[in-house]
Amino acid sequence: MTIIVPSGTGNVYAGSGTIQHPSWSPYDENGGTCVAVSGNDYCVVASSNRLSTGFSILTRDESKIIKMSHKCVIATANCQADRKTLQKTLQTRHIMYMHNHGKPMSVAAMAQLVSNTLYYKRFFPYYTYNLVCGLDEEGKGAVYTYDPVGSYERTGYSCEGTGKDLIQPVLDNQLKASSPLVLPAENWMTALPMDDAVDLVKDAFVSAGERDIYTGDVVELLIITKDGVRTEHLDLKKD
C-alpha cells in the first residue's frame, strides 16, 4: 500500500487558491524487516535491529519487537516514530486490559485491538507494517498481518518491511502454504518442526541482509512456546 504524502514542490491544494510548497514529509522510511512463522505449538518472530534513514544508518541496535505478554508479541517495520507511538499506545491499553480483566489479552483480542488502533488514524495513518504473533487459545501458533490502516488477516507465516520482497517468496516456497484460493480451505499452518523454522528464518535474514541495505547488523529472534518467550540474537553483516 502506498500512502501519498505531500512532498516536493508545486503541489496545488484544491480549494485553497494558493500554491504551497511543503518541503517536508511527516513520514520517514526507517527500514527493517520483520518475519514470523507459526507452527502447531510455537511461533518464531524475528526482526532486524538496524535503524536507517535514506542511505544513512542511525543506529545498529534498536529492537522492532515489543513483548506484550508471554504469549503475544508485536513486530513493527517502517516509520520509527509511528512505531514507537503505536507500540506505546498498545502497551498502555494492554496494561489497562490486564487491570480490568486480571489476565493478559489473547492474541486474537490483541489482533483486533491493533486493527482498531490503526484504523483510528485512518486519515493520518501510522505508517507501520505490523505482525501480531503468539499462541492462540488452543496453544497453536498465530500470525496476524496488517497494512498501515488496519486491514488484517490471520496467516501461518508472514513478512513485512524492506526485506519483504526478498523473503516472502522464499517462505511461500519453503512452507508450502496451500493457496487461500483452494476450496475447501486447506490447513495453512506450517508442519515444519520448530528448530527447522528457526533455521529457515535465520537463513532468510542472512540472504536478505546480502541484498537489502536496510536489513543488517543484528537479528533478534523471539521464539514463543507454551513455556514462554525465548530470545536469540543472530549477527548479520554490518555493511
Binding site: 517536508w24 514529509s25 511527516p26 513520514y27 520517514d28 526507517n30 535503524l51 534513514t53 544513512s56 542511525l58 543506529t59 541496535d61 534498536e62 520509527q80 516514530a81 514507537k84 507511538t85
Partner: peptide, 20 residues
C-alpha cells in the same frame, strides 16, 4: 530525537553531516 519524532539512544550520536 529528530523533527518527525524519530528517536534512539546509542553510545555515540551525531546529527546532520556529523552522521556521515
Amino acid at each position: 530525537v529528530g523533527m518527525i519524532g524519530t528517536h534512539y539512544t546509542d553510545d555515540h550520536i551525531a546529527t546532520g553531516f556529523g552522521n556521515m
